[in-house]
Design a protein around this nucleic acid. Sequence first.
DNA 1: TATTGTTATACTCTATAACTATA
DNA 2: TATAGTTATAGAGTATAACAATA
Lengths: 135, 135
Amino acid sequence: MDAGLGFLLARGGGRAIRTFNRALQPFGVRSRHYMVLLVAIQAGGCSQRDLGVALDVDPSVVVSLVDDLEREGLVRRETRPADRRTRLVTATPAGLDLLDRLRALSQRVDHELTAGLDADERATLLSLLRRVALG
Amino acid sequence: MDAGLGFLLARGGGRAIRTFNRALQPFGVRSRHYMVLLVAIQAGGCSQRDLGVALDVDPSVVVSLVDDLEREGLVRRETRPADRRTRLVTATPAGLDLLDRLRALSQRVDHELTAGLDADERATLLSLLRRVALG
DNA sequence: TATTGTTATACTCTATAACTATA
DNA sequence: TATAGTTATAGAGTATAACAATA
């Protein structure tokens, strides 16, 4: 099929999300929850606004994702005295523990998605995607 | 950010769909309608089942996409005497005409999405994506 | 029995606007 | 006034199951 680049991106992205979500099912979270956990932990605590920027989603979406994670005891919202508008999202020990396992899972899924590529090709794709998907 | 390949694919795909849909707005269709038109015309008529396979979507989704296009007079459903279960989706002259314009639009959007890449890099990305997104 | 298309339904995702509390 | 977070809502996308017509 004479598919354009945008179509291939969209289709590959859909496939990536579905595959990862299926793999995440036993853990009771979905791919976006994983991303929130990942960003919050890597930053050592992160405002919801910054989470929205990092994930490229609306602040209102961040609210419900953090709600879900908080309900599961995986993150906490802390109010910072410096600016009492912002809520600093930090991981609990349970959140840190879960992220460790999900990181490995994420790598397995990435590998499965690119099963047809060798290591060099995978690295090339990753670097090109970074320049297209971010910024 | 330490983003995995799946995350970058998902994010790039989302960006591609949103950008293309915005560009398509004046034409009254969305990206999936474009894909249906494209596949149906390239195949010179296509069953709904095959459209679903080509687009990687459920048959029930194809129904509503073809409904939309038929309502706009862009495609027709023909019953084939050979197998009266299948509906052959073919483009009308108006559909062919629209596709011509949308093809150019799609190329512009693809170019915009990969604005940071040179021609070689764009070709490499396209070929790698084909192997990841299809099959 | 199996397949094509259809309908119905529920859930997720996306996008927007309006509101609150703080600055 | 502007910003961070929240709530509400509508529209689009996704996933499933059940059904009719036909093979």
